[in-house]
């Protein structure tokens, strides 16, 4: 896929711009919104993005220049069109539109979830994986089938990361909750039964988060953190395994911020080894939200003619990954895989 694309991510807390070509990430500049207390406040996050948008864009252009890439070399601008917090999405979309107009290059609207999948395919040997995408807001099991990335299972209420955050806030652990829960879990003594909610292929975490908070009254922080992790991760690994069995695919890709958790990785590794599947995890900078993934999927979409007019570049806070026609995979992508089995 020839070309150079500048992409901007800003669906939630991380505002990030990157310039990529088909070989690698040329430059990336980010600025995170950090709430003083509690979790992400949507309006404050959007105000943060508005304040720093020009800073990250200027920064990434300057860094690219040092490597011989001029502003005039940029072929397209891509941005996270959704899903995400509406106010944040609109702010980033405005920046992207202005940039596309002033550079007189096409605009590409990227689905944030699919960007996670594609950056993983780019930066690991995974080719046609079942992707477990677990972050603060999203928890989905995705796999390509007949022209689209289908959602084989997803959360029916809140994302896994959000479930951790809610518990952590109630337990006085601060934000984000995941890393602290992982630390406490290491010193646990026993498992405390918590609700395990898998409905067919779908997941539910909000009841689990509440039950974990309740159970804190009579149990140690260590035991609850451990039990919360064990229960929630077993749920997502189960659905991932089901999707593998159902699709006949033999690769698993992990994406999203919660993917940083070592216990989750270990469980997926065990499941994959037992099924004879390969397990791939991209390096940390490509796991959480990042500008590089938006620029990269932007490049793939630009290369396959998948661009949008400014007039039709509305953001969509509920943008589903299975609503996107995949234009960037070669024809017969799936058939080739099936011949390999």
């Amino acid at each position: 896929m020839k070309g150079t694309v500048l992409g901007i991510e800003g669906t939630a807390w991380n505002l990030s711009a990157a310039i990529v070509n088909e070989k690698d990430v040329i430059a990336e500049v980010s600025d995170m919104y950090r709430p003083h207390t509690g979790g992400i406040h949507p309006r404050e996050a959007a105000q943060h993005h508005a304040k720093y948008a020009s800073y990250i864009v200027k920064g990434v252009l300057e860094d690219a220049k040092k490597q011989g890439i001029e502003t005039t070399d940029i072929d397209a601008i891509s941005f996270s069109q959704g899903p995400g917090l509406g106010a944040c999405l609109r702010t980033v979309a405005t920046a992207a539109r202005m940039l596309a107009l002033s550079l007189d290059v096409p605009l590409v609207g990227v689905n944030h979830c699919l960007a996670h999948v594609e950056v993983g395919r780019w930066k690991t040997p995974a080719n046609d994986p079942v992707t477990l995408y677990v972050s603060g807001a999203n928890s989905q099991v995705l796999a390509y089938r007949m022209g689209r990335y289908r959602v084989f299972g997803e959360t029916l209420d809140i994302g896994l990361g959000n479930a951790f955050d809610k518990f952590a806030r109630n337990a006085g652990l601060g934000h984000p909750g995941g890393p602290q829960i992982e630390q406490f879990a290491k010193n646990a003594e026993k498992y405390i039964p918590l609700p395990y909610v898998v409905k067919g292929m779908d997941l539910s975490f909000s009841g689990l988060s509440t039950a974990a908070t309740e159970a804190l009254k009579n149990n140690s922080m260590e035991d609850i953190c451990y039990s919360f992790q064990e229960t929630a991760f077993a749920m997502v690994v189960e659905v991932t395994e089901r999707a593998l069995a159902h699709t006949g695919k033999n690769e698993v890709l992990l994406a999203g911020g919660v993917g940083a958790n070592m216990r989750l990785r270990e469980m997926l590794e065990i499941m994959c080894t037992e099924r004879g599947a390969s397990f791939y995890v991209p390096e940390k900078r490509f796991m959480g939200d990042n500008g590089a993934m938006i620029a990269y999927l932007g490049l793939l979409m630009y290369g396959s003619g998948n661009i949008i007019d400014i007039e039709n570049s509305h953001v969509n806070p509920n943008f589903r990954p299975d609503a996107v026609d995949v234009t960037w995979l070669p024809e017969g992508f799936e058939e080739r895989r099936q011949e390999c089995i």
């Binding site: 498992y191 039964p193 395990y196 064990e230 229960t231 077993a234 690994v237 189960e238 395994e241 270990e266 469980m267 997926l268 065990i270 499941m271 037992e274």
Partner: peptide, 13 residues
């Protein structure tokens, strides 16, 4: 049995 799951949890499920 699923070895990725804690034995206690696995048996219960």
């Amino acid at each position: 049995p699923k070895n990725y799951r804690l034995k206690e949890l696995d048996e219960r499920i």
